[in-house]
Amino acid sequence: MPFDLHFIVRLIPALLQGAEITVALAVLTVVICLVWGLLVALAQSRGGVLSWIAGGYIQAVRNTPLLIQLYIIYFGFAMAGFPLSGFLSGLLALCIQNGGYVAEIYRGGLQSVSQRQYEAGRALGMRRWTLYTVVIMPQVVARVIPPMTNQAISIIKDTSQVAAIAVMEMMKVAEVWVESSANTYDVFLGVALIYLVLTSVAGLIGKVAERQLAFAQ
């Protein structure tokens, strides 16, 4: 095999340290967005001014690149006198952008539950809280898992952009190694491999979740 084993043995631990940051960023983003995205989606479904603001927010973050949002937050806060760490800026930017995407996913899930489910629940005398927790949300959860899994994979890949503000996640670590060792090829193999592992694991978790939670869909 055309790769340098000794080099890779030294490379992998360094990459894995970067991967820790990558995973931390990704997991935190997913968890925060699951809640934040739901809030935005609910705000949008309520109607009125709140819905308009939520809608505007979603369109704003979906139609601008993550990198620009990242720069606005990182440099903007710094210039305003409250400098944020690269990690925090990255987390904030990732959550803000993916909150919009996750809200859209929730919205699709909510819309796909037939109006008749609401009618049936109400006809049985359920009030709003019971209706939502017992009838509606379980169905939404089942429908929402596949697109959420895709979004999680997308989030893992997007963490690489945080390298632009010198956070030592995996991409940045790789960049440093490439510049110091001129061994581009092997670094690339290592990085690619670890990203593939991370995204595959996320995909597997999604499939398991789908099987466990998607009853009779």
């Binding site: 963490t159 952009q161 390298a163 790789a174 490439v178 581009t184 690339f188 595959s200």
Partner: peptide, 22 residues
């Protein structure tokens, strides 16, 4: 498809950028 969808675009861009001159 598996490889392309599992690796960030930035990774590919960066490495092609470094590899191409070589």
């Amino acid at each position: 498809l598996f490889v392309v969808r599992g690796i960030p675009l930035l990774v590919l861009l960066t490495f092609v950028y470094y590899l191409l001159p070589l």
